[in-house]
Computed example of a mutant assay.
Amino acid sequence: MALVVDPNLEMVPDFAGNLYAGIRADLEAATNQTEDEVITRLTETWNADHDARVAEWNRNRDEEARVLAEAERVHTTQENEARTQQEAEAEKERLEVEKKKPKMNSFDHASSVGDFLTPRPAQYAIQKLTNFEYVELWYFSPEGCKDALKSSRSVADNDLSITRTDDQLTLRPTSAFKASKAATADHELSFSIFLRAKNLFLVQISKAKWPQPNIDALSLFFWHLENHPIQNNSDIGDMVILTYASRVRQDWHDCLKHDEGFNIGNINENLIRTINEELWDKVRSRTWNTMPATVFPRTPVTHSHGCLHT
């Protein structure tokens, strides 16, 4: 049975006092001892019992102290672990926020702006390149860059749209998602504008971090077309090259999306000849249709496939 009162606070009873006179007389008669011997015996017996109870009390207090200390240690350990985990999670969240936070790069204090500023295409075109998507070369022509500058001045500051970037919703100018109404297809450009536009296009895809093999293939693609002999051997050579460039570049992007990419830098001469014949057929058809009926009577033309390709 656990002790509830500290025995260290107890005092030895006065066995020589009147309270214990009867007990002394009984013990004297029973043991044939003197009164002093009985008092000594009673005192020694009480002291022995008292010492045992004090020892038990101290053991219990030591055990309680040990249990409390262990519980405190476990509690402190749990608190430290919880705090460490919270701090780690908070640091992780801080690093994630810091990683997604826009950063401004430093600069060379000894440098200055260059002698020539590269024209800036529309945000729509830049966004297309960032997503590795097809976009018309017109956006990189002088006319396209002027149109972009004009549009950026006319767009209201609050004309924004929501987009998802890195699993976060962000606001971007609506102009970044709208194609220009003035944009034209590659094959509708003049050959000189085509050459100027492709130069800025190559610069911009490099800035957009396109894979270097893809950039190299496109550079070779444009070089071959710019120097293709059909331009000197045909009255419609420029038109053939522009049509080939327009169709093949679009097809290249489509194939890349389906993981069926090909080397666009390898020019397919058979396809160029096919396009050349197709365009000559159109030229001859237009010439035929504009001739007076008295010179070349018109007769119906039957096509084996039941449709007329234009």
Rank of each mutant, 00 (worst) to 15 (best):
D14N: 15
D14I: 09
D14C: 07
D14K: 15
D14T: 10
G17Q: 13
N18P: 06
N18V: 08
A21Y: 12
R24H: 04
D26G: 03
D26W: 05
E28G: 01
E28N: 04
A29Y: 03
A30P: 00
A30K: 14
A30D: 14
A30C: 03
T34E: 02
I39G: 03
I39D: 06
I39N: 05
T40G: 01
R41Y: 13
L42K: 11
T43K: 14
T43C: 05
T45D: 14
D51N: 11
D51I: 06
D51C: 00
R53T: 05
V54E: 12
A55C: 00
A55Q: 09
N58L: 13
N58R: 14
N58V: 12
R61Q: 15
R61E: 15
R61C: 11
D62G: 02
D62Q: 15
D62F: 05
D62P: 00
E63M: 07
E64M: 13
A65N: 09
V67W: 05
V67G: 01
E70V: 01
E70D: 08
E70T: 02
A71M: 07
H75Q: 13
T77C: 01
Q78A: 03
Q78W: 00
E79Y: 04
N80M: 10
N80I: 04
A82V: 03
A82P: 00
Q85H: 07
Q85V: 06
Q86A: 12
Q86I: 03
Q86T: 04
E87W: 04
E87H: 08
A88F: 10
A90F: 05
E93C: 01
R94W: 10
R94E: 12
E96Q: 12
E96F: 03
E96D: 13
V97W: 09
V97F: 07
V97T: 12
V97D: 10
E98T: 02
K99R: 15
K99T: 08
K101I: 00
K103W: 05
K103M: 04
M104G: 06
S111K: 14
S112W: 11
S112C: 07
S112Q: 11
D115A: 09
F116Q: 11
F116K: 08
L117K: 13
L117A: 13
L117D: 11
T118M: 15
T118I: 15
T118C: 11
P119E: 12
R120H: 13
P121T: 15
A122Y: 02
I126W: 04
Q127T: 10
L129V: 02
L129P: 00
L129R: 05
N131S: 08
E133H: 03
Y134C: 03
V135C: 07
V135F: 03
V135G: 05
E136G: 02
W138F: 10
